[in-house]
Structure formats: C-alpha cells, structure tokens
C-alpha cells in the first residue's frame, strides 16, 4: 500500500481520528433511525443518503489516519453508486405514484407474500 504525506498546510492541530469516527457513528445512527420510523419513501431515501455519508466520513478519516489514498478513492466510488441508486430509486417512486397516487410504504404492499 502506497503511503502519502499530508501535504502542506494540513498539519496544524489536527482533530483526532476518533472524533470523526464518533460523528460518523452518530450520523449513521440517525440515518438508521430515520429509515425505521419514517413512512415517506423519499425521507427514507434521504436517511439512506445520510448513512452513506456517515460511512464516507469514516472512510476519509481512516484514510488520513493510515496515510493511504484507498479510503478517499473508495468514497469516490460510493458517491457514484449513491448517485445511480438515487436515480433508479426516484424513478421507481415516481412510477409507483403514477400508478396508484399513494406512496406510503405501509400501503404499497401488493408484492407482499
């Protein structure tokens, strides 16, 4: 694994890695809570985005901790996948709304076994 230095200007009084991990954990928990208690699929999607962002923050923090670029490159790919996921998910939500005028996740249950 190739290691990188922090470059100039980024080395004064750094915040510790654990602080960023704690913030990432808090944001991930908030996202999971949003997925559990909300019924609007759009808000559930936003909560999923928040969880993805919390994981991205963790990856970038560990990337700095290990002086490796791998975490940042991975965040780049996660952002791409999140964009594709949002496009497909919102298209599905719009098509559900066009067929039944109601997108409450409790009433959309026709595929339930």
């Amino acid at each position: 694994m190739r290691r990188f230095d922090l470059g100039s200007g980024g080395s004064t009084a750094l915040v510790s890695t654990s602080s960023f991990l704690v913030v990432g954990a808090i944001l991930f928990t908030l996202g999971a809570l949003g997925v559990l208690i909300r019924r609007d699929p759009l808000v559930i999607f936003m909560s999923i985005e928040m969880m993805l962002n919390a994981v991205n923050l963790t990856l970038v923090a560990l990337s700095r901790h290990l002086h490796s670029m791998d975490g940042q490159i991975f965040v780049f790919f996660v952002m791409t996948v999140a964009a594709a996921e949002v496009v497909i998910g919102l298209a599905i939500i719009v098509s559900i709304f066009r067929t039944r005028d109601d997108i409450n996740v409790d009433t959309v249950n026709s595929m339930k076994g």
Binding site: S11, S16, T17, S18, H65
Partner: peptide
C-alpha cells in the same frame, strides 16, 4: 470506538 486504538494525531513533523 472507545476500545479501538485510533487516538493518534499526526504532528507537524509527520
């Protein structure tokens, strides 16, 4: 997070 050893901070000398 409380148990992991990631409390390191990089100083100016690297």
């Amino acid at each position: 997070l409380a148990q992991n050893p990631l409390h390191g901070v990089v100083n100016k000398a690297g």
